[in-house]
Design a protein around this nucleic acid. Sequence first.
DNA 1: AAACTCATCAACCGCAAATGC
DNA 2: AGCATTTGCGGTTGATGAGTT
Length: 201
Amino acid sequence: MDKKQCNTSQDPEVRKGPWTMEEDLILINYIANHGEGVWNSLAKAAGLKRTGKSCRLRWLNYLRPDVRRGNITPEEQLLIMELHAKWGNRWSKIAKHLPGRTDNEIKNYWRTRIQKHIKQAENFQQQSNSEINDHQASTSQVSTMAEPVETYSSPCYQGMLEPFSTQFPTIPDQSSCCSNDNNNNYWSMEDFWSMQLLNGD
DNA sequence: AAACTCATCAACCGCAAATGC
DNA sequence: AGCATTTGCGGTTGATGAGTT
């Protein structure tokens, strides 16, 4: 019936927003002791005032020990582009081919970095196309180019992969600093897991 | 130094599929 | 078979830090 029930977002007891270190520790400890499970009941049993969804997302994207943060390598960038050309926005599918990467991370990366470059490239192509068309329009009445290029398609990338990858010398630089920058937000996951080892449970 | 803009990313939301009863 | 619940996915938003004026 009401699917929002499992969400319980109306419940004032349910916390939202950024996770605190305490919450992270509770979740890590609970999963270390009991394993992953039914997330709604896990959230309750662990004493977290979060939805199961929120716990799951936090665990999968940030707390799992095998999650890699930052440092998207040029190889990964190209792989993401190739897989996106093949499958489109199937982020979870793409993420499966990038060990340690999450769908959310890849999605964000795509939207903030790659899409920007592609749009620039598209604009550049459209500009040069329109210049060519302007030139050709004087000799021909064909108007098929009015159709906008819709989202992704592998042919669309064909010409973009090369210029994109060669203009990338700027991006790996930032990725090399990102792992630390990201960790500076609050604390590092290495800290967390070493704490776990110290706790022993 | 302050105000403003832009880029990034963590987290939420809604929906559909999967699963259990 | 039908309903309820849970899980997973993709899109979107809001907070925040960095850069610019």
